[in-house]
Write a protein that binds this DNA or RNA. Structure first.
Lengths: 215, 215
DNA sequence: GTCTATACCTAGATAGAC
DNA sequence: GTCTATCTAGGTATAGAC
């Protein structure tokens, strides 16, 4: 294990395949196993032996497809981040009455993110943001920035809402949802201080639309 | 390293001193060193050798004061969480006009949490929420729940604000601040999509007070 | 009570058979 | 191209000197 805290800086973020390989089936199989272990256990607590066992291949096969542990982890997080961003936050979801659109957006967001896989991704990206800053930046650009951009564009296209700062308002909207999931699902708030998603949505949407919270 | 993902379940959360000891100076010294390394590197990536070096003591001295690595980490996070909760979120901060109070609260919150130490605590608590669920629960009760309670009490004591759901509103307020810090400071949003704290506060406070976002 | 030295183990990564 | 077997470094934890 390297002592440097920025050990992954040399990993290329754009190189999808560090080693040329004809068979992609094994590669998928490895990534599938790696996903289970890395997202559950985190980077440092995951051993290549466990990844090999979960994927049903030998260690050497992994090292044949990926340069090292860092390369495997980087490829995995890139894949999950890119794949997960496709279904959510398409601009065509934002068509119609603002109130309807925001409620739909919040519900879609909850459905997508409450999955154990997505929660684990958020947790791991935050956890490894020091060691793998380029992965955190990828997540920020691919998920956070894009979501904020789409929503603030929607606000700008509805001047009757009189939203003075679309970016800040979009941040509040998504930030409330994300912090809800972190506190409720990751930090066990669901057991300690439960709050229903409907409560949050029913309060948040009118607030953003400047209609007061008395719904 | 244990293979169980719930290895820390046996750690007692209330036992402040696992081993009776006369000299507390060394114990403080150890915790100071442990804070530097654990908060920076995370649990699994921290070695006891590095803690010993950072604290300026030998490994055996650490094992004389703490049962094992888990015990040291648990004691550290407990200490930081308890100590950090004292200066912030005292109920007497919430005296005066709602607008003034909320702005003061947001500013205090930013000042406290933007410190590298506090950001690192949040990151580690989230990162290790699987392995140390009792520490995540401690953080939730001590920080999140208490903050929400104090603010929702404040909302309830001001019925003229017509806040229908004080708990949900308090979550939105703090959740927007927390997610701001996570995205800006931890996930490098500051470099990618900068957003000034004043922007957020100027949008959030009128929104919560039902005054629209045109300030 | 604190340090030096060490036992024991698991980690990442590689060599060589097939 | 994939497996079994193995090497070496670094990890946690402990024994014994002072």
């Amino acid at each position: 294990m390297k002592t440097s805290s920025q050990a992954a800086s040399s990993q290329e973020i754009s190189s999808q395949e560090p080693i040329a390989h004809p068979s992609n089936a094994k590669r998928e199989q490895i990534l599938q196993g790696a996903m289970q272990v890395f997202l559950e256990q985190g980077y440092a607590n995951t051993s290549m032996d466990r990844v090999a066992a979960a994927a049903g291949v030998s260690k050497q096969t992994i090292y044949s497809h990926f340069q090292d542990k860092e390369g495997l982890f980087t490829a995995l997080i890139q894949r999950v981040t890119i794949e997960r961003i496709q279904p959510e936050l398409r601009a065509d979801v934002l068509q119609g009455e603002p109130e309807v659109v925001l409620r739909r957006l919040a519900n879609v967001y909850f459905d997508q993110l409450t999955s154990a896989e997505y929660l684990a991704l958020i947790r791991v990206v935050i956890a490894e943001s020091n060691r793998f800053p380029e992965l955190a930046q990828l997540y920020t650009r691919t998920v956070i920035q894009r979501g904020r951009q789409i929503l603030s564009d929607f606000f700008r296209s509805h001047p009757e809402l009189e939203i003075a700062d679309p970016e800040a308002t979009a941040h509040i909207f998504f930030g409330s949802l994300v912090s809800f999931l972190i506190s409720q699902e990751i930090l066990y708030g669901k057991q300690i201080m439960p709050l229903a998603p409907e409560q949050l949505i029913d309060t948040l949407v009118p607030m953003v639309l400047n209609r007061g919270s008395h719904y």
